[in-house]
Computed example of a mutant assay.
Amino acid sequence: MKTAYLLVFDGLSDWEPGLAIAEINKSKKYQVKTIGLNQNTVTTVGGVSIVPDYTLDEINYGDAALFLLPGGELLEKSPLPPLVPVVRRFRKLEIPVAAICGPTVFLARHGFLETAQHTSNGKKYLQDLIGDYPGSDLYLNQPSVSDKGVITANGIASVEFARDILSELDIYDPETLKNWYDFFKNPWLED
């Protein structure tokens, strides 16, 4: 069974990765494990306490299927140097990295969006926080973008973000994935 690693930290926006991690865990192919900057219990914005399963230096890249970076001010405001080599290794091994909301700033700040189409909470949002960045010409004004193993989404696109992750991990066939998406986004549609 492959592992989808979810970064956890104080102030994590727990609703943003919720659908994705639920569907990943329901699959028979993957499991979700939490990664902390240390072993300390973290508290999400919603008040949920999480004890990380592992720390950054305990990741087993041999069984890794995804690195998921949920929203939260930490990744928006801090350059977070210990995380850079981890993301770099995921990308070098061609293991997908998914970032929603604030972590898109982290990815742009460290050059991880240089060659991949991407989105965020707005191009101006990224530029106001970090200025011009390599790959800014690849910005797309869409809720979620998946390109070359990099999945990015704005903070109100958790359903689209989950859809792109589920597609990348090939959890559902295209028709089932469309039906799953429509269930959350267009429940009033009739077959």
Rank of each mutant, 00 (worst) to 15 (best):
A20H: 01
N186D: 11
V150M: 14
F184W: 15
T41G: 10
Q39R: 14
L169I: 03
V48F: 12
I171Y: 00
G11T: 09
L107E: 01
E114W: 08
A116G: 08
A157N: 06
L107N: 01
T115K: 13
E114A: 15
V48K: 12
L126S: 05
I100H: 00
D53L: 03
E76M: 12
L140W: 10
T44F: 03
S120I: 09
K185Y: 10
Q142S: 12
K77N: 15
S167Y: 07
Q127D: 11
D182Y: 14
V97F: 04
P187S: 08
N60S: 13
L126E: 04
K123C: 12
P174S: 11
G131L: 07
R163M: 04
F90P: 01
S144Q: 08
I100F: 06
K148P: 06
P81A: 11
A65V: 02
I21L: 06
V150P: 03
L107W: 04
V97K: 02
A157T: 07
S13C: 13
G36W: 00
P174N: 06
P134L: 15
N141K: 13
R109I: 09
D137I: 12
G18N: 14
G11P: 05
N25Y: 06
L37Q: 00
P79A: 11
N179Q: 14
Q127I: 13
A116C: 14
T43C: 11
T34S: 06
L56D: 00
C101L: 10
S146M: 11
